[in-house]
């Protein structure tokens, strides 16, 4: 088992390095002068030269990459051109927003998807099952940003129950939670639809096995068998998907924050694109990619915990 964990950790670190190299190359080596991109076509030669000096563009590419990675490892992502503060400060300010949204979306997804998926499996080939399958088919096809707009139309414009967007900070926790309700639903629905289907088919697979029949025959209630015996055994495929879904939720916040005007990293990345703030975009893209890679790594490790057979084999 330790060998397995060591190998996966080494792979994880290697992947992060390659990802950083890809991000750096796309942002720095592709044709085009970053200084010109940032300052625009009407910049003076002196200003361009000064910015090139500040960005270290006069150094060889490899040296720039090494110093970027070295500094990033110490939490230094350079200075943002548009905000004129360290990028790490911008990230620290906005990270809580993005994380709260992603975590809320994940909880929403798990609660909805596991209940619907197990419920549908329990009613296999009955109306409830078909209903869940139909709703999830539609749920997968609905773009999150359109769902957001529909939710705003209904709950903010028509019913006026919830705010249409914006976030006033955590000083008023009730108001803060209220502004997160619609974004959480919009973010979670698509992932719930996907996960509900996986949960259903995985549970159906387990329900066919002998030990489930034995458990029922020994007098355990249907509900107890479903939640205590079927669900734990159906978890392996579910966890694989959940890991990928957490990654999808985190990148999904980029879209949702822009629909609801929430001050998180996703909104920052778009402000930085329109301000041509390359160091900030580069840091944020790296951060998001790192979260995706980390989520997959954690799933790999979780396998060993969930499926003891893997422990013996590896």
């Amino acid at each position: 088992m330790w060998y397995f964990i060591f190998r996966r950790t080494a792979g994880f670190v290697a992947t992060l390095f390659v990802v950083s190299a890809v991000v750096f190359s796309v942002m720095n080596i592709l044709p085009g002068d970053p200084a010109l991109t940032i300052l625009g076509l009407d910049a003076t030669d002196d200003a361009l030269a000064a910015l090139r000096e500040q960005l270290g563009l006069n150094q060889p590419v490899l040296a720039r990459y090494v110093s970027w990675v070295w500094n990033a490892l110490q939490g230094d992502f350079g200075i943002s051109h548009s905000f004129r503060v360290p990028v790490s400060e911008l990230i620290a300010e906005r990270l809580p927003m993005t994380v709260s949204l992603a975590v809320a979306g994940m909880i929403f997804t798990l609660v909805i998807a596991l209940s619907l998926g197990i419920g549908a499996a329990a009613r296999h080939r009955k109306v409830g099952d078909w209903g869940v399958m139909f709703i999830s088919q539609i749920g997968i096809a609905v773009p999150a940003f359109w769902l957001s707009m529909l939710l705003v139309l209904l709950f903010a414009v028509k019913l006026r129950w919830l705010p249409p967007g914006g976030f006033a900070g955590w000083s008023d926790p009730v108001a803060a939670m209220r502004s997160l309700v619609l974004p959480t639903i919009a973010l979670g629905v698509v992932q719930s639809a996907v996960l509900a289907r996986v949960t259903r088919s995985s549970a159906l697979e387990v329900m066919r096995q002998d030990f489930v029949r034995t458990a029922r025959a020994s007098g355990l209630s249907r509900r107890r068998v479903l939640w205590r015996h079927v669900l734990p055994n159906a978890l392996v495929p579910i966890v694989t998907i959940v890991g990928m879904q957490f990654a999808a939720l985190v990148t999904g916040t980029i879209v949702i924050e822009n629909v609801f005007y929430l001050p998180g990293l996703g909104r920052l990345i778009f402000q930085s694109i329109s301000n041509r703030d390359l160091p900030t975009v580069q840091a944020l893209v790296m951060l998001f990619a790192a979260i995706v890679v980390t989520a997959n790594f954690v799933v790999d490790l979780l396998y060993v915990v969930i499926d003891p057979r893997l422990k013996a084999r590896t």
């Binding site: 942002m27 085009g32 990345i269 694109i273 990619a289 995706v292």
Partner: peptide, 15 residues
Amino acid sequence: FAFPALLFAIMLAAV
């Protein structure tokens, strides 16, 4: 798989 389309598009759009 580490780069969702959105991230890749963001990089290209920034440059």
